[in-house]
Simulated scan of single mutants.
Amino acid sequence: MSKKPIIVFEGIEGTGKSHHIKNVANYLKIKKIKFIQIREPGGSANSEKIRNLILDNKSTFNKETDLLLYLSARSENIEIIRKNSGKKIILIDRFTDSTIAYQHYGMGVNLKFIQSINNHILRNVKIDFTFLNTVNLTNMKERLRLRKKLNRYDKFDSKFYEKVQNGFLKILKKRPKKYIKINSNLDINLNENIILNKINDLI
């Protein structure tokens, strides 16, 4: 594996993935290791514009439009990833597996359609490792309740998030060597140590 890997943090809302990616970023800064950090949707200026459209509480896109907007945001980011691949560690807050988990397992969009466009956008870009953060629905709801502002994707019903999380777990089973499951119901400090130990192995 490359010593400048592409590392993705996945999970449904309230799993702490954004906290952990920030913690890893701070760790790399202290170690003076070069990296870039992006999020999906978001990252580049154009992708951030698309993010605002997707997550706006007033948006009422159908599931196919939602998918195509997410993939458009990814298309805007891919050159950033290609430009830095092999030169810097790349940390990504959500990526291709989120699209499959949410749009296919959650919303029922055709899997082959998603994979076809994903493959066209990514081409030779490959993820080296993924941290899948999981949470029970009780803790997820409590964490969302504490947020100051909720976006459109924070407001689905419990059955939707359950389908999405189960989708992530199905993806993990297909690639167990490139995935680690982080149980975010456990102590956050314990999980920080698990993640940073794995980061050290990867780099």
Rank of each mutant, 00 (worst) to 15 (best):
A45R: 10
D157C: 14
K173H: 11
N46K: 06
K170F: 09
F113K: 14
Q103K: 09
N200D: 13
D97P: 03
S72L: 07
K83M: 09
N151G: 07
N124F: 07
K155C: 02
F131Y: 02
I6Q: 00
I21C: 05
I195D: 00
I171R: 04
N139P: 00
I30Y: 12
F160L: 11
M140D: 00
Q103F: 12
R39M: 03
Q115I: 15
L55V: 12
D97T: 07
N151M: 06
K159H: 08
T134C: 02
Y70D: 13
N52H: 09
N57F: 02
I89H: 01
Y179N: 10
Q103V: 09
S98C: 08
E64S: 12
H19F: 15
R51P: 01
R143D: 05
E10T: 07
F9I: 00
K178A: 02
K3E: 05
N133Y: 08
D56I: 03
I21K: 08
S158G: 09
R123H: 13
I12L: 05
K22Y: 13
L28I: 07
G11T: 00
L68Q: 04
K32Y: 02
G16Q: 06
L55I: 08
N77A: 14
F61M: 15
N84E: 14
D97I: 04
K3N: 04
S18V: 02
N46Y: 09
S184D: 06
K87T: 10
K112I: 09
L111R: 15
K170A: 10
K17E: 06
L55N: 05
K88S: 13
K32N: 13
P5S: 04
L202V: 01
P176S: 08
N193W: 03
I90R: 06
N119L: 12
V8T: 10
N46E: 11
L55S: 06
N166Q: 15
K163G: 04
K87M: 10
L169C: 08
I121P: 13
G43V: 04
G86N: 14
G86W: 08
N26F: 12
N124K: 14
R94C: 00
K174A: 11
K32M: 00
A73F: 11
K163I: 07
I78Q: 10
N57K: 04
Y27S: 12
L137C: 08
D56C: 05
T15Y: 04
D93N: 11
I117V: 15
H20G: 02
E48Y: 07
I194E: 00
S158M: 15
I92L: 12
Y161A: 01
N133W: 06
N191W: 05
S98T: 01
G43H: 00
T138S: 15
